[in-house]
Amino acid sequence: MSRKPALLLVPGLVFILFGFAIPSALMLLAPPSTPTADVFARLGAMLTDPYDLAIIWRTVRIGLIVTVACVLLGFPIAYLLARSTSRFAGMWLALAIFPLLLSNVVRTFGWLVILGSQGAIGQLLVILGVTDQPPQLLYTELAVVLGLIQLFLPLAVISCYSAVAQVDAGLDHAARGLGATKSQTLWKIVIPLSRPGILIAGTLVFAGATTAYTTPYLLGGSSQRMLSTQLFSYASVSVDWAAASATALIMTVLVFLVSGLSSLVSRKAGVTA
């Protein structure tokens, strides 16, 4: 295997360059029959227009809420499972990972049944006499946030789990033996040592939540537009390539910014640790 390795790369490289890298770059900067200047003019207009800014801000806000919620709910699951001695721990871990294999569309439909006007929560509130009419729960920001948490929580669980599992449980015992309380052990030993995994979890969830399409489309409707649903409508309803590229640029920069920031933070932490 002296000269061949380079040859092995060729088909894959050609494919990823012509099937991904070049088309994506063209789409972002030079869409068909649209001068690049138009894309940037449109981008400038979006960054000053209140309607577009509201969509950008909603996307960032929902992304942040979902990220915090997923880490807050995912870390405890990962920690309890990683430290559990129960013979059912493996089964519970599998149950948390399983949704990753299941279609987003199927997972999101559940919220239609729960939050819809004929749905479980609305009916329950009417039966209990809290309201006469089922409240509007679908097509709200809350619906989108719940749907996205459901979608990305398994990802947070896996990332946190592999991080916590790498922290030697002996350290927990040592800290406890030296008189630390359970919560001191958690905050001073386990969380600092598993910070890289928590950071990865947060980055993956944020990138996923700010670019997801199915959930804001089904649960947010036209009143809760996010960058992804806006991009789709520019691309296929109004066929406005300049606007689609500008929206795609905002989305891509947002994701790259957060991924870059996160790897910068983890590298810095690695140097000081």
Partner: peptide, 30 residues
């Protein structure tokens, strides 16, 4: 293999995980 720029090549092949899927979809449509 001993190829130069190994991590760069690997990064290129992992990059579809980072670029939003809608961007890839629209790019290929165009």
């Amino acid at each position: 293999g001993k190829i130069p720029g190994k991590s760069l090549v690997e990064g290129l092949f992992l990059s579809p995980l980072v670029v939003p899927e809608l961007v890839v979809g629209l790019a290929l449509y165009q």
